[in-house]
Lab assay of single mutants.
Amino acid sequence: NQESVVAAVLIPINTALTVGMMTTRVVSPTGAPAEDIPRLISMQVNQVVPMGTTLMPDMVKGYAP
Rank of each mutant, 00 (worst) to 15 (best):
V5T: 00
D58F: 15
P12L: 09
G31N: 03
M21T: 05
S28P: 03
A34E: 03
V19I: 14
V27P: 01
T53I: 07
I13Y: 12
R39G: 06
P29A: 02
T53A: 15
E35T: 13
V5H: 04
V5D: 01
L40H: 01
D58I: 08
V19S: 13
I11D: 00
M21L: 02
N1I: 12
M21Y: 01
I13Q: 12
A7Y: 07
I11M: 00
P50S: 08
Q2G: 15
G31D: 02
I37D: 01
G62C: 10
V49W: 05
E3V: 11
Q2N: 14
S42R: 09
V48A: 13
N46E: 03
G62M: 05
L10N: 14
D36N: 03
A7H: 01
S42M: 10
V60R: 02
N14R: 00
E35K: 14
L55N: 02
D36I: 06
V60T: 02
L40F: 04
Q47W: 08
R25T: 08
K61V: 15
G20Y: 12
T53N: 08
T23C: 10
D58W: 15
T18H: 05
G52F: 07
E35P: 03
G20M: 12
N1S: 14
Q44S: 10
L40R: 02
T24E: 08
L17N: 07
A8T: 11
G52H: 07
E3F: 11
L10W: 12
V6L: 07
M21P: 07
T54E: 06
V26I: 14
E3S: 12
V9N: 01
V48Q: 13
T24W: 09
M43T: 02
V9P: 00
M56L: 10
V6Y: 00
V6I: 14
G20D: 13
G20S: 14
A16C: 13
T24C: 09
T54D: 03
G20P: 08
A34Y: 04
M56G: 03
P57W: 15
L40C: 04
L17S: 06
A16T: 12
G52M: 05
E35I: 13
M56Q: 10
L17I: 07
L55E: 00
P50L: 10
G31I: 01
V48N: 15
